[in-house]
Each structure stands twice: as structure tokens, then as C-alpha cells.
Design a binder for these strands. Structure first.
Lengths: 112, 112
DNA sequence: AACAATCATAGCCAAATGGTTATGAGTTGT
DNA sequence: ACAACTCATAACCATTTGGCTATGATTGTT
């Protein structure tokens, strides 16, 4: 019998980031900051409805927020929503050994 | 147009860990160490062929290794295969800001 | 008012996914 | 030798997934 120890929405986060297009959208949002669906569609190379669906999945994982402004919707990344994944990694990933360098960078604080 | 910046097999890692059963298997392997398919099947709560298929996916992501011994196959976790995910997180996740505490634990070295 | 732009939703479809049972190959025990 | 065990693969199935086009609601522009 499986007992889940991962946080509740960890599953949503893992699932959301499993798709490369969705990862690319999230990456673009963190790199370039807030973007409209239109801009993201141009970037992603898939149809606008496809982008909208991806954004819905990301939103379900709380990885993005949206803000309506007139006829366009602006989306932005919420990197702190990655917490469950980081928590999981810390726990099950490199708990005993790791070879990843300069993870200290993760500890750098920057104002939101 | 999407330009991939993530390491080649990052996709495999993300995809492998997207499934909760697969995550649970990986967790069990890191917690309890090497396990046979039989033991993992008892643990996972799904059929033995299902476990074998999951292990194949994990193996494709290099998250597990296997070692034949007689009629049983022993699987073990390879936490360092999580590197692409950690790399990705460092890059796109908490590059600017983060609220995750005590990630220094990730830096603790333990002999393999 | 009419038109254009932006986006979400609905409806559709092919492919992938995660599960099952059946089976066979190899290994161990009697 | 034979029975039992371990595991991978095959074959199948239902559901999910990721894409598309069509459409409609809303907002901006002329």
C-alpha cells in the first residue's frame, strides 16, 4: 500500500512541468516577465487555445497568476510555487549524496 | 519558436517523476535501498507488470539501475540522475527569488 | 455602428499513458 | 524431472493528454 508523503499539490506541480511546451512557457515567463496570451502564443509555436489550456494547467499548479487588463490577459510566473518540488528533491533526491554544484545560488534572496 | 535550453534528458526525468506511482517507487528505493521487483510490487499496490513498466520509464531517465541476481532483479535509485531537474530549478525556478529554507542540506556529501 | 483583436471554452481527434491478464524465459527448490 | 518463483514482454483496454478548428464573449479601434 502506498502512503503519500508529498505535499498535496506536489502532484499538480510535477504533472504541470512534465510537458516540454508547458516548461517552455514557464521559462519564458520567468525570463521575460509578465506576458499576454498573444505573446506567449507567438513564442510557443502552438495554437492560442493550446496555450490557454497549458496556462490552465500551470494555474492549477499555482505556477502562474493571471491579471485581466482590457481584452488581454497577462500571465506571470510564480516561482515560489515550485516549493513542493524543491521539498521533494531535498527529501528523496539528494538526501544522502549529490553531485550538484553551487546550489547555494538557490539561497540567494531577491526581492519580488 | 521554442528553443530548448534544458539538458537533453531533462524531459525524461520530468516525465518519469510526473506519475505518483513512479515517484513512490523512487522514494521507496531511496529510503529502503535496493529492492527486488517483487518487493516493489508488494509496496506499490499495482500489478507486477505495471511495476516493471514503471521501472523501465525510470531506467530511461537513468533514475534507477538494475542488477540481475539469479531469478530476481534488484533495482536501486540513482539520485544524481536528478541533476537536470535541479539544474532546471536553479535556472528557472528560484533564480530571482525563493522562499525555500535550508537547502544547504542538499550540499551535504555522503559517500555512495 | 461596424470591424478587428484578444482570449476562453467547446468539441473533436490521434496518440500516449497507466493499468490489466496472459505468457514465456530463466532460476531455484524438492 | 518437475514444480514454483521471479520477472519482462505482449496484447489489450479505458482514460488522459495535447493538439486542432470553430465559436462566442468581451474589449478596443475606426
Amino acid at each position: 500500500m502506498i502512503v503519500r508523503v508529498t505535499p498535496a499539490n506536489a502532484n499538480n506541480v510535477f504533472r504541470a512541468l512534465a510537458d516540454p511546451t508547458r516548461r517552455a512557457i514557464f521559462e519564458e515567463l520567468t525570463r521575460q516577465g509578465e506576458q499576454t496570451v498573444h505573446a506567449l502564443t507567438r513564442y510557443a509555436g502552438v495554437s492560442q487555445p493550446a496555450v490557454s489550456k497549458h496556462l490552465t494547467v500551470l494555474k492549477l499548479a499555482k505556477l502562474v497568476r493571471h491579471r485581466r487588463e482590457g481584452r488581454e490577459t497577462h500571465y506571470r510566473a510564480r516561482p515560489d510555487a515550485l516549493a513542493p518540488m524543491v521539498y521533494w528533491l531535498r527529501h528523496y533526491g539528494a538526501f544522502w549524496r549529490d553531485r550538484f554544484d553551487r546550489l547555494e545560488a538557490l539561497l540567494e534572496r531577491m526581492e519580488s
